[in-house]
Design a binder for these strands. Sequence first.
DNA 1: GTTTCTTTGTCAGGATTGTGTCAGGAAAAT
DNA 2: ATTTTCCTGACACAATCCTGACAAAGAAAC
Lengths: 225, 225
Amino acid sequence: MSAMEKIAIIEDDPGIRTVLRLAVRGFATVCEAERGDEALALVVRERPSLVLLDLMLPGLDGLEVCREIRRTPSVASTPIIMLTAKSAEEDIVRGLEMGADDYITKPFSKAVLIARIKAVLRRPASAQGPVRLLSGLTVDEASRTAAVDGHPLALTRSEFDLLAVLVARPGRVYTRPQILAHVQGEEKDVTERTVDTLMVGLRRKLGEWAAHVETIRGIGYRLTP
Amino acid sequence: MSAMEKIAIIEDDPGIRTVLRLAVRGFATVCEAERGDEALALVVRERPSLVLLDLMLPGLDGLEVCREIRRTPSVASTPIIMLTAKSAEEDIVRGLEMGADDYITKPFSKAVLIARIKAVLRRPASAQGPVRLLSGLTVDEASRTAAVDGHPLALTRSEFDLLAVLVARPGRVYTRPQILAHVQGEEKDVTERTVDTLMVGLRRKLGEWAAHVETIRGIGYRLTP
DNA sequence: GTTTCTTTGTCAGGATTGTGTCAGGAAAAT
DNA sequence: ATTTTCCTGACACAATCCTGACAAAGAAAC
């Protein structure tokens, strides 16, 4: 994070906007929109490195905004952090399904906010080259190869895609429907439990690295860096 | 960027065309069209390494031109930079969705223009001269000959093109549609399985080198270095 | 602490899909 | 006209995937 990052704030409450703006001052510039239907245009124009997205918005619902961003190729990979009321757990799950990277429940402390933001920004920006994780896991999308400590893994197509999804954003939780959507390009109307079965094979082949693949009970799976 | 690049300019305003032509002089030659319905033919004929595409065109809309190019396999991967009025945000979004690589809003400065162009061009340099791989495979695009341990191979046109694609990026996985797009310059609406059949012939002629041609089940093929 | 309910791990077979291969005819090159 | 190359369709075989069932592990209720 050598240069200044740019963060887009989509939030209708001026008070919260100010809080956010002040919180990130020091390591990021901001651009703002207060209506959901202005959000996509703002993101396309400004190409922020992160989007803070309130779920309760006038004009267009936050979840819809999230989906729009993910469907627009030029900005589809922009990280999104949702801001949501503590109670709306259902929205959280749906938001994650829709491709949000993380969520923060209101009210939030400045410390938590900054920590989450930095955690998201600190990720390798969707680079093309091979992704390398600490403990020696290497995943290369171009050659579709994966290796642990230089030792290549014989993964099936689905297993590789599964691993690729998790590796794309280490630490982020993926729900089963979300994983299925990535693993089988099209909808094929498949039981969610299929993911578990795939995970068995993947974990087996990962050997001791399998310990990094965490099950988040009630939600899905994630990779711990 | 060792050699001179070729840039296609699709723009109806003669004044802007001149500005563009002068701006890129020094590192690129140009070919031009003023009508949208001439654009695809120009691109197919000239095979430019970049297309500058105005969105407001007589004959055929710029967005349509963009889509046509992306749908024509032989030139589908040509980078496209859109030229658009600042206000037309909707068009920008749709253009990016349609596969454009970048956009520049009018009026633009010469510096921005050149920076964007060079950024786009500065990618996969298709190297020239014979390519040599470790185990003794030699592929020379110029003379269209290939040899294993100095022993020339009698490849058909398609077989050579197929090998050339794989050799261009050893290790990278190519899907069948991708391979077809390269092997048959024009779109010919051919079954994907044709690639398999070609691969049979290629592998046979490669002899023991065939072991380096890997099948990635469910995806395509790849060369192992 | 025990019971009950939900969620996940695991496995084995059957269904599905992908690939190697070939032969024959169309298309192109000579 | 002859030869070469290309494409299609079919078949067999193999890899992989999905389902359904049960066991195990947590979480919640009592």
